[in-house]
Design a protein around this nucleic acid. Structure first.
Lengths: 223, 223
DNA sequence: TCTCAAAGTGAGTGTATACTCACTCACTTA
DNA sequence: TAAGTGAGTGAGTATACACTCACTTTGAGA
């Protein structure tokens, strides 16, 4: 495995923002926690102040509005976390040819799942935003989607050329893989009764491999 | 196809509630639309009154609180729509043995997808609730999940006995199928750039069939 | 020890909005 | 036609909450 610890990006980014005081850090943390627990609208600024052990005025010292506070939380997610989850590959990885399909699937998804697990709260907040802020959703998607299609696309094309995977349109392939990934993440985020997570993860990889394996049933029906 | 028009349940249920006046119906419809467009918290009762062409007082004549209004919308969804989507089969269908895997998958999902399409707004509202109302989510799930596991389980067991599908644990099979279904629904609900929906639907069935088809790669790895 | 700037404070303010209530009006029944 | 009923109304109320500002505390540098 040996891949860089992706989870650090977030911490990094938060502390890079000039010098952030302990109080302000507490406010960010409390906001993130409360937004994830109750949702943005259900969280009042006085809730935040209370949880952070600060006065309400302190919340407004750095962030002019409640929305700006939310944005300060979402910014590093949009800037680092989402691209990582959605598309970024190291150059090494892109150039590498995968010996087997299973190797590819394992390489791509293992660290992403681990990363998502480490950032459940952030994902919850960003999903809430994505659900009703149409404009912002489209903005983020328009940045992510083409990159993802392009980067994943080149790997997929390689695998296709090596006859390691099924010959379907790339967007359809991506859709079914992402569905599996998000189905799994949904269980994490919503804390659904998730028997043994380890077993699910192994299964996830098996299913994805199976979807991609070339075979006789690959013709798309009903066309 | 020839299956009963499931989408009528909702209309039915709404009008069954004693005698509902046109104004009250307009208020329910406006609420549903606005909740789906902007979310529950972003919608004020005066918004609703305005959209419905009624006075704000009229909103409160039948529904004592804004939350009660939301519940009046969610109740029929929880009572009919979600069970239909999630589990209910006609007795006929349960007794029937499916000649092929593809026939099974097609039968199960075609009408569900059609049904979901016809109820996008309702699904959006119920998903919003499910995201942050932990208690209610668990309540609904505890009603639905066992029924689904039991009903789908018996069909799955039959198919297993006939060696038509892979021999995985039922919950894992359900999870991967539902992931595909919800991945598809998410595109509908969020109105993501969805090239041609017809193609996607045919693909959905193909992928599900492929996941279920028995084969050599079926051993779950990393166990 | 004093000074100054920045961080922190919390009582106070304006506004949005959930909800109420005294009233009107359309309609039915006697 | 008179009385009664209940749906509909919208100005009014109480409250919660985002945001402000005059003031206090902290701590680094002289």
């Amino acid at each position: 495995m040996e891949r860089p610890r992706i989870r650090d990006y977030f911490q990094q980014d938060l502390s890079q923002n000039e010098t952030i005081t302990p109080k302000q850090r507490a406010i960010l943390q409390a906001s993130l926690d409360l937004f994830a627990e109750k949702g943005f609208d259900q969280t009042s600024t006085s809730d935040i102040a209370q949880r952070a052990g600060a006065a309400e005025g302190t919340v407004y010292r750095r962030y002019k509005t409640k929305a700006a506070l939310r944005d300060a939380i979402l910014a590093p997610i949009a800037a680092h976390i989402v691209p990582i989850l959605a598309s970024d590959f190291s150059e090494d990885e892109l150039r590498q040819r995968y010996p087997s399909l299973q190797a590819f699937v394992t390489a791509i998804f293992t660290d992403r799942v681990a990363f998502a697990k480490a950032n459940v709260k952030e994902l919850k907040v960003i999903f809430e935003m994505a659900a009703f802020d149409t404009e912002r959703r489209e903005q983020i998607l328009s940045q992510i989607a083409p990159k993802m299609v392009k980067q994943m696309g080149s790997v997929i094309n390689q695998l296709k050329a090596d006859h390691l995977i099924v010959d379907w349109p790339n967007d359809l392939i991506l859709q079914s893989l992402l569905s599996q990934l998000f189905g799994y993440l949904a269980r994490l985020i919503l804390e659904l009764p998730g028997t043994e997570i380890e077993r699910e993860q192994a299964y996830l990889i098996t299913v994805m491999t199976k979807i991609l394996t070339p075979g006789e049933h690959d013709q798309i029906t009903g066309q």
